[in-house]
Design a protein around this nucleic acid. Structure first.
Lengths: 330, 330
DNA sequence: CTCCTAACTGTAAACGATTACAGTTTGAAA
DNA sequence: TTTCAAACTGTAATCGTTTACAGTTAGGAG
């Protein structure tokens, strides 16, 4: 494996000159020609560890989230990737955490100069996570609910207002008994959507009982199906909001099997507006949380912060958007 | 930012001793105690670039593929992640390539000691890709069709036999006029599925005309919908095979809108058996290409190769599995 | 108490790049 | 031809680790 020294020798110049040619600083035409020839000759590739050690930069930005299986995160990744591809930073992903421990382990390796910036969207809210993030010496952009007292760039979607829109829309289309099939309350989205749902129902004087919130143990179709199956009497509701589209898809599957008509017997709304929403039958009304856009914003915040390390941190809020489809027709 | 030297000073030992404690070599109990105390005191984290430079290892394995939007790759990632999480290697992902140029750029950075191993699943077959891979000095596991003359570890699913199964199943359930809504033929899967489809039809003496293969320009529901919309006379077919489940979902959507019954008028089969298949209505019969399992196999091949660099390369073939659902009922 | 081995520890040389700084060339102007 | 500034080039220090090697220490055996 050729090093810069080998190239220098082959070209008959100093390693400083090779370095300058590689990094685009000025050099005499003849020098440059010889260096380039030697580089091709030897198949030289600069060693990135050595470079990173010297310049204290890895040219990498890490995007991490908890659940690659959720298409909303895939959209977010697309947004981030799109913005970063026109910068000189490489995007690397780190995902599929199964536990808070893994997140912690991951955050620790972030402290080792492994990336120049971290865009993170944690769904679990554990005090350790906030504390580790605050100790990180690299810029962090947090996508999602900002933990108390953490001062980093943040992009956040007003999911409470999304729930609000969903309830509003259901009421407008004549529904009054609304249930929420919620994701785990150990997660931020789970907790916040639950709270927002309760507020929205109370604000309108709608019935809210213990049974109005049905807890699923994951944000997946299977979990949605299982959760709704456990419900004694689905018929007493005329509308269901899924904690996300996948949960809603599980509910829809159950209703189909039990011959419960959507939207005739029960209206159904999902959250995230992933591709699946328009493929289901009936097509699924959904609250679009603009994941791709949030990814773009996060990436831009990161680039801005990297270029300008001392600016005060920014918090950006994105407004959700109601996408009406068949599952809530009157 | 604390370095090993600062820790050594604080603990009153040499940097060699600190290094030994950190890396788990033997040390006197008292030494170890003092070093650990200093580490916690200073919040020391070893610099990974310096370590990588010295030991010529990054402890990272890179997984790259072209389309994160395809849930099959997400499954594959899960398989890889699962295996790697019990090793000391970190998994990093690199995806969302929009062009062969980007893949090439990416492969070049792989040559810089950025990862210790590369698991790659390229869908485009470009001679440059094969040539770059063969020049890489790190172990490579290729998931998918192995380019001519490239001698690396490989895991490959016999998709021809999958198509075979699909046709067989359709014939058994009484269909004889079968169309394929294929993904782009600029991709390996697109090309191979087309060829396998033609062979299967010819082998059975079934009608195969120019119209039997409908080319979509991506492996997405929208592309499937668009492709099938362009077809003059869908009615002359009694079965459609989608190049993947997402293409099939697009076809299903179209059929629903045009009041074409599935499976009554047309039987439909997808490929990949992603979650979506069981959420659609009717549920979608699909050829399971065992993406998660292929990911596991690939990761194990990689670990094995890393432990044993000189063994001859292995090629492993996975058999697809037909999952029968409603969309092909007689 | 002396000796000896085993266990530990420290010194210093790498790893492969970047970059001040000082020295050398170049070429136009006088 | 000489002069001088601008442009280029080379030397050597440095980034933060690991590790061979040599030196030290500990503690049991004699």
């Amino acid at each position: 494996m050729a090093t810069i020294g080998a190239v220098a020798k082959q070209a008959g110049v100093s390693i400083a000159s090779v370095s300058r040619v590689v990094n685009g600083t000025t050099a005499r035409a003849e020098t440059e020609r010889r260096v380039r020839a030697a580089i091709i000759d030897l198949g030289y590739q600069p060693n990135s560890a050595a470079r990173a050690l010297k310049v204290r930069k890895s040219e990498q930005i890490c995007l991490s989230f908890d659940d690659l299986g959720n298409p909303a995160y895939v959209s977010m990744t697309r947004g981030v990737g799109h913005v970063l591809s026109s910068s000189h930073y490489r995007l690397i992903l780190s995902s599929a955490f199964s536990s808070v421990e893994e997140i912690v382990k991951h955050l620790e390796t972030m402290g080792r100069g492994f990336a120049d910036g971290l865009i993170i969207s944690p769904i679990y809210s554990d005090p350790r996570i906030a504390s580790l993030i605050s100790r990180l010496r690299i810029p962090v952009v947090l996508v999602g609910t900002l933990p108390e007292g953490l001062d980093v760039d943040n992009v956040h979607v007003d999911s409470a207002s999304g729930i609000e829109m969903a309830v509003e829309h259901l009421v407008e289309t004549g529904r009054t008994n609304i249930a929420l099939v919620n994701g785990p309350v150990t997660t931020n989205p789970g907790r916040r959507r639950k709270a927002a749902f309760e507020r929205a129902l109370i604000a309108r004087g709608l019935t809210l009982t213990d049974e109005s919130i049905i807890q699923a143990d994951a944000f997946s179709p299977e979990a949605g199906y299982a959760a709704i199956s456990n419900l004694k009497d689905l018929k007493k509701f005329d509308a269901v909001i899924g904690g996300n589209d996948q949960l809603a898809a599980g509910v829809m599957k159950f209703c189909f099997e039990k011959n419960i008509g959507i939207p005739s017997d029960i209206a159904l709304i999902g959250i995230d507006n992933i591709d699946l929403a328009s493929l289901l039958r009936p097509t699924l009304t959904s609250i679009d949380l603009r994941a791709e856009e949030r990814g773009e914003i996060a990436a831009n915040l990161m680039l801005d912060r990297l270029a300008n390390p001392d600016r005060p941190s920014k918090q950006i809020t994105v407004e959700p958007k109601l996408v009406i489809r068949e599952s809530t027709a009157s």
